[in-house]
Simulated assay, not measured.
Amino acid sequence: MQASENNRSFTQLIEFEIEPHQQPALVLALSAQTEHLARQHRGFLSASIQASDDGRRVLNYLQWQTREAGEAAFRSFESGEEDFWQLIRAHQAKAVTFGSFQVLHSLERSHDNALHCSLVGWR
């Protein structure tokens, strides 16, 4: 199934498998890199960095207005000053898994405690 062209929101998920002692440093490095991407690239919507309780995984979630914006930012990340592959080596990631997704449904709570839902049709 494919999302309709009306929805072009795009999410990148990058999961790192690491040794627990590497988790804090990787989280800090990803935080800095993610803030840099957000400032430097148009189309940024949101990001989060999540750490597993056992210390063995870190998940970097980046959401962009369009696939093109996300891919352009990632190309920059791959070849930037602190390039992505150096980041992987520096934090001794055992495995890195990439995923790209179109957003089809989202649910958010606003400041006034109301729920807002967005659902995109299929074509």
Rank of each mutant, 00 (worst) to 15 (best):
M1I: 09
M1F: 13
Q2M: 13
Q2G: 12
A3S: 13
A3Y: 11
S4A: 14
S4F: 12
E5K: 15
E5A: 13
N6M: 10
S9F: 11
S9T: 15
S9P: 02
F10L: 07
Q12F: 01
L13F: 10
E15K: 15
E15S: 12
F16R: 05
E17I: 11
I18W: 05
E19W: 08
P20C: 12
H21V: 13
H21Q: 09
Q22N: 07
Q22Y: 03
Q23G: 05
P24F: 00
A25T: 07
V27F: 07
V27H: 04
V27N: 00
A29D: 07
L30I: 04
L30A: 12
S31E: 05
A32L: 05
Q33S: 14
Q33P: 05
H36S: 13
H36K: 12
L37V: 07
L37C: 10
A38L: 09
R42S: 11
R42Y: 10
L45W: 05
L45M: 13
L45I: 15
S46H: 12
S46R: 14
S46K: 10
I49D: 03
I49S: 02
Q50P: 00
Q50M: 08
A51Q: 09
S52I: 06
D53V: 15
D53P: 10
D54E: 04
G55S: 10
G55R: 04
R56D: 04
L59D: 04
Y61A: 00
Y61K: 02
Q65H: 03
Q65E: 15
Q65Y: 02
T66F: 01
R67Q: 11
G70W: 03
G70A: 00
G70Q: 01
E71R: 10
E71A: 08
A72H: 06
A72E: 09
A72S: 11
F74G: 01
R75Q: 13
S76D: 14
S76C: 06
F77D: 01
E78P: 00
E78T: 08
S79T: 14
G80V: 03
G80C: 04
G80H: 03
G80K: 03
E81T: 10
E82N: 15
D83F: 10
D83S: 12
W85V: 06
W85S: 05
L87H: 02
I88A: 04
R89V: 05
R89C: 00
A90I: 04
A93H: 01
A93Y: 02
K94F: 10
F98I: 02
F98S: 04
F98C: 02
G99R: 08
F101N: 08
F101W: 01
Q102P: 03
Q102K: 08
L104C: 05
S106N: 02
S110F: 00
S110I: 00
D112P: 06
D112K: 08
N113M: 07
A114E: 15
L115H: 05
H116Q: 12
C117W: 07
C117K: 10
S118D: 11
L119I: 13
L119E: 11
V120K: 04
V120S: 14
G121A: 15
R123C: 11
